[in-house]
């Protein structure tokens, strides 16, 4: 009899536990984790974190409460969300620089209620660093003059400039913070400029 009581109690608690798990399971099942979009090049960051984001991905996921305020204040509306996928990244923000890039205005950092995005000085933001494919970029293969990336860069000569003696060949300097505006404006269909993690990038040195 005691055993039966125990089994009854145990099954009741099991049922209760399953019922309590139900909403979490439903939410997770609806948004399965998906593979990140295919990288055109090794190390390419297709999805950038908003500026001021915690560098460690796990720490960022822990800190973000998925409120969406960062996107709501974003003037270019470049911040999007893992709304229908993402698994544990569900409702976390990202920036797809090829579609719409960050202008480093800093409003998202100011509005974030948690430390997922912390207010960072513009030059110290680290979303990555731009890399240029010199075998495709129009001026580098001598198929035209361009300079779109250099003109649009919000950090100017600290981040990107023209190679000495050759006016329109862009090179990236270590001041680049990886906002991705150059990626957005690049007119080449294969986007021969892209963002990688800072430690994976290589930069030109300022040398005159």
């Amino acid at each position: 009899m005691q055993r039966r009581d125990f089994l009854a109690t145990a099954s009741r608690w099991l049922g209760l536990g399953l019922a309590a798990l139900l909403p979490f399971g439903a939410a997770r099942l609806l948004a399965p984790a998906s593979a990140s979009p295919p990288q055109a090049r090794p190390g390419q960051r297709n999805y950038l974190r908003p500026p001021g984001a915690k560098q460690d991905d796990a720490a960022f996921i822990q800190a973000c409460i998925g409120c969406g305020n960062c996107a709501e204040v974003c003037p270019p509306r470049c911040i999007r969300f893992h709304a229908r996928d993402g698994g544990e990244r569900l409702n976390l923000p990202y920036i797809d620089a090829q579609a719409r890039a960050c202008t480093l205005c800093g409003k998202c950092m100011a509005v974030c209620p948690t430390d997922a995005l912390t207010v960072t000085r513009r030059r110290e933001i680290d979303m990555g660093i731009a890399q240029i494919d010199r075998s495709a970029c129009y001026p580098w293969v001598d198929t035209g003059v361009c300079g779109a990336c250099v003109s649009v860069c919000p950090l100017g000569e600290h981040a990107i400039g023209f190679k000495m003696w050759n006016q329109y060949r862009p090179v990236v300097y270590d001041g680049c913070v990886g906002c991705g505006l150059c990626v957005e404006v690049c007119p080449h269909p294969s986007k021969p400029i892209w963002i990688v993690a800072r430690e994976q990038g290589s930069v030109a040195r300022h040398s005159l």
């Binding site: 979490f24 939410a27 997770r28 948004a31 996921i61 822990q62 973000c64 409460i65 998925g66 544990e88």
Partner: peptide, 10 residues
């Protein structure tokens, strides 16, 4: 356990 703010989704 998962390091995610799960309440945001439910």
């Amino acid at each position: 356990a998962t390091g995610t703010v799960l309440f945001a989704a439910i």
